[in-house]
Every structure is written in structure tokens, then in C-alpha cells.
Amino acid sequence: MSKMGKLLTTADKVLLSCTVLLLPFLYFSAWSQDLQADSVKIWSSSQGFQTFTLNQKQKILIDGAHGKSVFEIQNGKIRFVDSKCTNKICVRAGWLSHAGAFAACLPNNVSMEITGTTGYDSINF
């Protein structure tokens, strides 16, 4: 210990302890990724972006270009229940739960996307 004491000054000790304390932060910032798919971003031309959690059962009404689009959230999933359009392609998309899942009602200018990292830069369909 006495040898250590000679080698390390007070400044060294402060530096060393700071560094050790900061290690966990370094670990998390380098290795943890934003993988959770627990929220959904809903966009409409009249209301812009809004974010909702997928962990809470709820019904959401969004104003689109021609009327309301209705969403339902349940058990970490979301779907279009109804929308102001004729073909209901948005409703047929059904329940979505994966990060990056996307559905839109183009006639009513409303879209939704489940947030989170997907590992893809762009989706082709």
C-alpha cells in the first residue's frame, strides 16, 4: 500500500475513481440499443406527429384530411378500427406489433409507425 501511495498522487486517485465510476455508463452507451417497440407514432396532415404508448389499452381518434381515423391499442398491439375512406386498406392491415411496422390511410392522410430499431434502413414492398 505504501508503494501505491507513493506512485499515486491525489489527482491520480481522483482521476482513477472517476474513470471507474464512469465505466458502467460507457458500457451502456456502447452496447445498449433502443430495441423496445412500446410506442407508436401517429401522423396526420392536420395534427402532425403524436406518440402513444402500446402498454395501455386505449382508443384513439385522429383528425385526418376528411374525417376521423380510429385506432385501438391493446396488449402491445395497434390497429386501424375505422377511417374516413372507402377501400379500408388501412383496416385490413390488422393488428401490428413489430418495431418498424407501418400502416397508412392515404385518402385520409393518416399514418402510423411502431417505433424502435428494425435493423433496416428502408422497407421495400
Binding site: W95, S97, H98, A101, G119, Y120, D121, S122, I123, N124
Partner: peptide, 17 residues
């Protein structure tokens, strides 16, 4: 390189990349 996911034609999610 850019990575592209190809959506499943019948189900939710990506089926190829």
C-alpha cells in the same frame, strides 16, 4: 452498405433483406 427489408406479401413484418 444500406440494408433494405422486403416486406412479407401476406403477413406483418419483413421476410427477406
Amino acid at each position: 452498405p444500406w440494408v433494405i427489408g422486403i416486406r412479407d406479401p401476406r403477413n406483418e413484418g419483413v421476410f427477406a433483406s
